[in-house]
Amino acid sequence: MRLLHTSDWHIGRTLHGADLLAEQEAVLGSLADVVAAESVDAVLVAGDVYDRAVPSADATGVLDRVVGRLLAAGAAVVLTPGNHDSARRLGTFSGLLAAAGLHVRADTRRLDEPVLLADEHGPVAVYGVPYLEPELARHELGGGGRESGPRSHEAVLAEAVRRVRADLAGRPGARSVLMAHAFVGGGVPSDSERDICVGGVDLVPAGVLDGVDYVALGHLHRPQTLTPRLRYSGSPLAYSFGEAGQDKQAWLVDLDAGGLAGVRAVPLPAPRPLTVLTGALEELLADPAHAAVTGHFVSARLTDPVRPVDPMRRLRTRFPHCVHLEWTGGGARDGRSYRERLHGRGDLEVAGEFVGHVREGVGATAGERELLARALGAAGREERAR
Rank of each mutant, 00 (worst) to 15 (best):
T6H: 00
W9G: 01
I11C: 03
G12R: 03
H16Y: 08
L21W: 10
E25S: 08
A26G: 04
A26L: 10
V27Y: 03
L31E: 09
A32G: 11
V35I: 12
D41G: 14
A46V: 01
P55L: 11
A59G: 05
V67S: 00
G68I: 00
R69G: 11
R69T: 08
L70M: 08
L71G: 02
V77D: 01
V78Q: 01
T80F: 00
N83W: 06
G91P: 03
F93P: 04
S94K: 12
E113A: 14
L116A: 10
H121M: 04
V124R: 04
Y127S: 03
L132Y: 04
E133T: 13
L136A: 13
R138T: 11
S152C: 13
A158I: 07
L168C: 03
G173S: 07
R175H: 07
V177T: 11
H181S: 05
F183E: 15
V184L: 01
G187K: 00
S192G: 00
R194T: 15
I196S: 10
D202I: 06
V204N: 04
V204M: 04
P205E: 03
D210N: 10
Y214V: 03
Y214A: 02
G218L: 06
H219I: 08
R222V: 02
T227M: 11
R231D: 02
R231H: 05
G234P: 02
S235E: 02
A238C: 13
Y239D: 06
S240D: 05
W251R: 05
L252K: 09
A257M: 06
V263W: 03
R264F: 08
A265L: 07
P269Q: 06
R272S: 07
L274T: 02
V276D: 04
E282P: 14
L284N: 03
D287E: 12
V293R: 06
V298T: 06
V298G: 06
R301Y: 09
V306Q: 07
V306R: 10
D310Y: 13
P311R: 02
L315R: 04
T317F: 11
R333W: 15
S337T: 14
Y338E: 12
R339E: 15
L342N: 07
L342Y: 10
H343D: 11
G346E: 01
E349R: 00
G352P: 01
F354H: 14
H357W: 14
T365E: 15
G367V: 04
G367H: 03
E368F: 07
A373I: 02
A375K: 02
G380P: 00
A385N: 13
